[in-house]
Write a protein that binds this DNA or RNA. Sequence first.
DNA 1: GGAGTGACTTTTT
DNA 2: GAAAAAGCCACTC
Length: 112
Amino acid sequence: MNNKINKIIKMNTNSRFSELVLELTKKVPPGRVSTYKIIANKLNTKAYRAVGIALKNNKFPIVIPCHRIVKSDGSIGGYSRGIKEKIKLLKREGIKIRNNKIENFQKVLFRF
DNA sequence: GGAGTGACTTTTT
DNA sequence: GAAAAAGCCACTC
């Protein structure tokens, strides 16, 4: 099951970086969020922006919970289908959002 | 292989 | 505290 997902990810990422980004994104549990910064730090890099690029370019947003990745100040960030959709998905998982910012950000933040 | 781009972050106005 | 600027580095073409 998970192996299949990994294969799919590898298929669609020629570079190691994107692969790792997607791997980490997958590990964020439901109801929690993480940030581009945390992921970049986890990969020992400062390519915060490249993390976003990797998520944007991933071909399988179904298996990758991209919506659980937000900006480091708790605001939403971006989403290929529009931030409205992202907010909706987050709310569905029990995360409260006000004025495009996540409430209890520190609480729901998942630090790996 | 160089230049432009971006779902970011931090610092400075 | 909002807005702008600067810094960052992988990605794409």
